[in-house]
Write a protein that binds this DNA or RNA. Structure first.
Length: 186
DNA sequence: CTATTGATGGTC
DNA sequence: ACCATCAATAGG
C-alpha cells in the first residue's frame, strides 16, 4: 500500500490546485505514542492579498506572517474565541496563500467517534491549537503531516462551491474555491 | 434566529 | 484604550 508523506514542494504550487489535490489525502498527527489520522474531505483555497476573504488581504501582520513564509507550514488561528482552524501555507515565499482544511472523515485512533464535519471540529478532534502554527507539514520530524495513501479522487467525486462565511469579500465571495468529496472513499 | 468567546486589526 | 468584526458551532 502506498503511504508517502507529502513534501514541501507539493505545497508550493497554485493554491486551487493544492486544495483540490488534498482531497483524499490523509491528515496524520502524533500525540506522544498515539496517532490520529483521517481522510481530508473538504478544503478551501485562500489566495493572496487580492483575495478579500484571505486574512492576508489586510497585509503582513503578526497573524499572517506565516502565510508570507515558505509553503508547507501549518497556519493555525483561533476564531470566535472558541475554535481553531487548520490551514497549510501554499505557493512561494512572499505570496500569502493557504488552504483551509474544513472536513476530515474516516478518522482512526480516537477512543470514540467524533464529528469532524467543520474546521472547528477537525481541530477539536485532533487536538490542534496555536502551538502548531508555523510548524512544517512535511518531513520526518513533523508532529502533524499529510500522507498520500494512494486514494485516487476523480473529478466526478469533487463538488466545487463558494466558500463558507465570507459574505464580506466583495467580488471574491462567490469564487468557487471550496472543494469537497461528494462521497468519501471509505 | 440567537448566544457564545477572545483574538485580531483598525481607529482614536 | 476602545470597538467592531470574525474562514464557527450549538441550540431554538
Amino acid at each position: 500500500m502506498i503511504c508517502r508523506r507529502l513534501a514541501q514542494h507539493d505545497f508550493e504550487s497554485d493554491t486551487l490546485h493544492v486544495a483540490r489535490m488534498l482531497l483524499g489525502k490523509y491528515l496524520v498527527i502524533r500525540h506522544g505514542t498515539s496517532t490520529l489520522s483521517g481522510c481530508i474531505s473538504e478544503t478551501e483555497a485562500y489566495c493572496g492579498e487580492e483575495d478579500k476573504a484571505c486574512h492576508a488581504s489586510k497585509g503582513r501582520t503578526a497573524r499572517t506572517e506565516v502565510m508570507y513564509g515558505p509553503p508547507g507550514n501549518w497556519y493555525v488561528y483561533m476564531i470566535y474565541g472558541m475554535y481553531h482552524c487548520l490551514n497549510v501555507v501554499t505557493e512561494p515565499v512572499n505570496r500569502p496563500c493557504a488552504v483551509l482544511i474544513r472536513g476530515v472523515v474516516d478518522v482512526k485512533g480516537l477512543p470514540q467517534p467524533l464529528k469532524t464535519d467543520g474546521p472547528g471540529k477537525v481541530c477539536k478532534a485532533f487536538g490542534i491549537n496555536r502551538s502548531y502554527n508555523s510548524t512544517p507539514a512535511y518531513g520526518s520530524q513533523a508532529d502533524m503531516w499529510v500522507e498520500d495513501r494512494g486514494v485516487e479522487i476523480h473529478d466526478n467525486q469533487v463538488i466545487k462551491s463558494p466558500r463558507i462565511g465570507v459574505h464580506y469579500a466583495g467580488e471574491y465571495k462567490d469564487k468557487p474555491w471550496r472543494f469537497l468529496l461528494s462521497e468519501h472513499p471509505a
